[in-house]
Design a binder for these strands. Structure first.
Lengths: 329, 329
DNA sequence: AATAGCTATTCCTTTTTGGACTACCCTTCG
DNA sequence: CGAAGGGTAGTCCAAAAAGGAATAGCTATT
């Protein structure tokens, strides 16, 4: 083995490991984002480079030869070392920059933005940068991600924050116009205002209220909750929205929750981050604070929901409350 | 660090390590067999890939940044793992093939070829393949290399065999034509027959005989000793040749060693092999045998040289001897 | 027989790579 | 001071490499 022998291509190594793991060029092609043809060629090139056959070809796919099995851990180790090196640099670079917190718009509007100044004042040394993916230019991965999902994400550390209490809400004027809503099934004569990212809400609602197979008169979909809430307030339809996002409108009477209709959804708002990343000073403090504030927010929502539920049971309409804090939205 | 991040190119890693070691794209270019321009681009591509600066640029060259220093051992380890894997496969493949023994032609002609049948008969299970680099097609590295060098090679296990006793030899007819050679300085009126690969012989000869600065009338260079010996025997000039290669001609009187002129050279014939390679069955036996036969060959040469030296001191010409074995050259 | 899954191969386009050349900077020396 | 020698990065372009679309052939299953 003379010193002038060139190493294999890293694409070849990546492809080799994928084929070894999945036992098929077709499946590996999907895993590494190449075509089967390119995968086949990469394997052949690697075999030629190393001067030995790495896979037996069968009609069912590829199986490691003995030589391939010998080489496998070395290829893995090489790729692992590169990843470690890159990760070390990435983490080192992260030390000197703000903690990137990505968050869906509605959570910012209704929850965090009015609370964050308290944290910022208590921790002036912790630099936090809020991001979202509205712009395609944004390619940096956030350190913390706050968004809607229906459970923990594999490979990520995930914490539930709030938002699983979903309510059917509508403007009083709409209900008057439509003859009110005397029972759950009356919703079928309504226009439903739905969020693109919450496709399960309708199914969950019908399941909870024994309306399986029921279809609303119309469905209109939006990408932002702030828009849905405005549409609902304008009387364009009924909306299924997390209670915490419509707490103020319910309190002021701009929106009401007829018959206390609602359900507990599988989908809520979660905080996630990568567990492999060494965390900077302040990261843990920020996560802890966010979770604490979310718990307070969620408790307030649950308390209000319980209060509304008992008022409905007593046959009295919910009592409008004073806004708890000034709203900037 | 998302899972879909691609590893760097291996060329980039190789170049990075070379620049880190040599501190200059120009020097690294030589080391990795690329131009300085290509090296510069590879470094830039790697820096862009990793998202950080790896070198500070100065007028005197490139110096690792802190980030570069952090990355260095990872790059090294990755390349090392690839080399290990390839080596393992290479060694495994070597188990099933002949031991490749490369040897310069003259050593084969005058030493090994007539002795090897004895070894082959004693070890029929050891398959040996003789190679040389006359053909450019020959790209496989030999397991054992026998050639001329002036000492051990770094990174190789090296054993001296024979050939450091060098003699000045000429045909009797030439000496008669040129009025004999009464003292060492008379060589300056001769034509010197020299071997391309032994450029130090003339300097060593003049040093030994107090002829510093002396220049022969003519110098003719050849690439093969068998040709030099033939030219000397034909009277075309005097030759400086290892005694072991002209033993038969000296014994028969076809060539003589006037005044016993000669010297012990720094250059001789050595056996080398890579110490990193796991050795196949028979490898050790073959090396041991080769060294033993070389020792015998060298001892015979030294004995003859000593015999000739004492004859010269006594003023009698060397006694021509019967050829010890039939010569096939 | 039809279908679905697999493989390698050919043809061709696109992308990447690396060399030749150049401009610019610095250091040293006469 | 200018010349020489060492270094760097950048531009232009040709060659090499990479990868996709399409295809042929094989097998296993229904």
């Amino acid at each position: 083995m003379a010193g002038n022998r060139l190493p294999p291509s890293t694409t070849g190594l990546r492809v080799f490991l994928a084929v070894a793991r999945l036992g098929s060029t077709a499946k590996a092609a999907v895993a590494v984002n190449l075509t089967q043809s390119a995968v086949s060629k990469q394997i052949q090139a690697l075999e030629e480079h190393l001067g030995t056959t790495l896979f037996e070809r069968t009609p069912q796919g590829l199986k490691l030869t003995e030589a391939g099995s010998i080489y496998n851990p070395y290829a893995e180790a090489a790729i692992e070392q590169m990843e470690r090196g890159a990760r070390r640099l990435s983490e080192r670079a992260a030390q000197g920059r703000p903690i990137r917190l990505h968050m869906i718009a509605i959570a910012g509007e209704r929850w965090l933005m009015e609370r964050f100044p308290v944290f910022a004042q208590a921790h002036p040394e912790i630099d936090v940068q809020f991001t979202n993916f509205v712009s395609e230019e944004e390619t940096e991965e956030p350190d913390i991600d706050i968004g809607h999902q229906s459970g923990p994400l594999p490979g990520r550390e995930s914490h539930y924050l709030f938002g699983r209490q979903v309510a059917l809400v509508a403007a009083p004027s709409l209900l008057e116009r439509m003859g009110g809503l005397q029972r759950p099934a009356d919703i079928q004569k309504m226009t439903l205002l739905q969020h693109f990212q919450m496709p399960t809400f309708w199914a969950e609602f019908t399941e909870t209220h024994g309306l399986r197979g029921a279809v609303p008169a119309h469905t209109v979909r939006y990408g932002y909750y702030s828009v849905i809430i405005r549409a609902a307030m304008a009387g364009l339809g009924v909306a299924l929205a997390p209670r915490c996002y419509v707490a103020e409108e319910l309190a002021s009477g701009a929106l009401i929750n007829p018959l206390g209709l609602g359900f507990e959804s599988a989908t809520g708002c979660w905080l996630t981050f990568s567990p492999n990343t060494e965390h900077r000073p302040g990261f843990e403090a920020l996560v802890a604070w966010l979770r604490e504030e979310a718990a307070i927010f969620e408790a307030a929502t649950l308390a209000k929901a319980a209060n509304d539920a008992s008022a409905v049971a007593a046959g009295t309409p919910p009592v409008p409350r004073q806004a708890r804090r000034g709203s900037a939205s």
